[in-house]
Each structure stands twice: as structure tokens, then as C-alpha cells.
Amino acid sequence: MSPLANFWPDMLELLKKYRIHLVTGGVLLLAFLFYSLNLKDREHANLFERIVLNLTAPLHGGISAVNRGLAGVWNDYVDLVDVRRENKELRESVKILNGRLLESREALLANERLKKLLELKNSLHVPAQAASVIGEDGAPWFKTITINRGEADGLQEGMPVVTAEGVVGQVVKVATNSSRVLLLTDNASSVAGMIQRSRARGVIKGKGGGRCSLEFTLREEDVKVGDVVVTSGVGGIFPKGLAVGEIAMVKKGEYGIFQTIDVRPAVNITRLEEVLVLLQRREE
């Protein structure tokens, strides 16, 4: 037998023996060829790519939407946990800031009040002691207040007590570190006063309930509603010219030698917080 007679059976046998390798190599070669052929037009999608992209686009969209939704839920949850904590912190901050705001407002108001008191103190040319109101009378028919200055600060009974608005009253009972002040509106209070415009004189007496009256003013004296009443300096307790209030009502009867005059105090005694005690002794 010639050698060629055995060539084809031997080759077939060889192919059978290495068919796996050959097929694999062929496939790889085809893939490589496919790849190399597409290189020159790599910027454009070919038919296969378009089909695949078109078919998978809705799926991609759906999956992406679900994914976004899940991610959103998760992030929202995580954010909520943070937000709750943050909310708590912010609420605390708001509380603290509100407190500071109130403190600032109070300090501002106190500053304004004290500035007025200081201006008054400088204008009076009398030694004075600032005091805070720490208590009020327990009974509605007496009008007294308690202040936080006493004998240790140089206070004595009879000293006048004023604010920037006008006369408050006078010191009546002095302890070491506190004193009581008889307000202008108490029934037992009397201050020598006069009408600023006409210089008509009288005695300002308390009537309780936040009111005063100007008594012993002669009938023929010129007194009108709205006139300002000031201290006359008579009696030596209050310096002359301090505001006491204004005339609220004038009544002249047919008989009698005096007028009936109501005075509205210049100082709102229900809102007193700081006062000035004039450290002058009663002139004997």
C-alpha cells in the first residue's frame, strides 16, 4: 500500500483526536476576526448591538427605576434617622437661642431703665442709691413695696424714692439689707406739691387703688385737667420740681374753700422694677 492511501484515514483520526482543540481554536479565531472586523467601525452600533440595546432598554429602565426607588427608600430611611436626630438638636438649639433672645431683650430693657435712672441721678445733684423692687404689699388696701437696699447702703426712714418718670414714695421701714417704701398712692402718704403751670399749691394724698388727690388747694386757684403736678419742696422731704402726676379731674363745688382734684400718678406703680432712693435726710 502506498503512503497516500493511509493519509486520509490518518488525518481523520487526527482530527477526531484533536477536534475539541480545533473547534476551540476555530471559535476563538472567529471571535478574533469578528472583533477585528468591527474595529474600523467601532464608533457606530451595528445591527446586533442595536437589537440588543433596543431589546434591553425597557428592562434597563425598569430595573433602574426599581433600583432608584429602593435606593430612595433606603436613603430616605437613613436620612430620616438623621433628620430625627438633627430635628432634636435643632429644637434644643431653638430653645437655647430663644432663651438667649429673651435674656437679651430683658438686658436691653433693664439697660434702658437704668440709663434713665442714671440720667436722673446725675441731674438731681443729690447722692442717690439705686434699688430693685423685691416684694409688694400682701394686702390690697395698703400700697407698699420692698426694695433690696437698707441701712447698710445708707438708707434711712423718710428718704424720697423716685424713678425717671417721677415720685414713687418714701422709705418707711429700714432693715439692714432691705427696706419698705410707702407708695405715693397709699392712704397714709402725703407729699407737698404744686401745679407746675400756675404754681398753685396743695398736698398730694394717696387714695389707694393707684390714685391720688391734690388737697387743700384753694377754690380760686387756677387748676385745669392735664396740668402737671410737681413736688413743691415744702416739708424738706422731696426736692422741688419732681414730677408727681397730672390732673385727671377738677371739681369746684358751690360751697367750701377747697377744690376737689384727682391726680393721676406719673409713675405706674404696678410695673416698678428699679427705683432711686435719694440719700438726703429730712430737713429739721
Partner: peptide, 27 residues
Amino acid sequence: GLLQLPLLLLFSAAPGVYAALLPALLP
């Protein structure tokens, strides 16, 4: 209050105190 009234009227220098005391009693 009513006990205080005569004591104040008789022994204090606050003759008009009844005008402050009496209206305050009921409230």
C-alpha cells in the same frame, strides 16, 4: 378686713382707707 377698718380709722393717719379696703374685700 372689717376688724381692720375701725382700727385704721381710729388709730392711723389714713382716714380714707375705707375707700380702698371695702371694695377689695369681696374679690
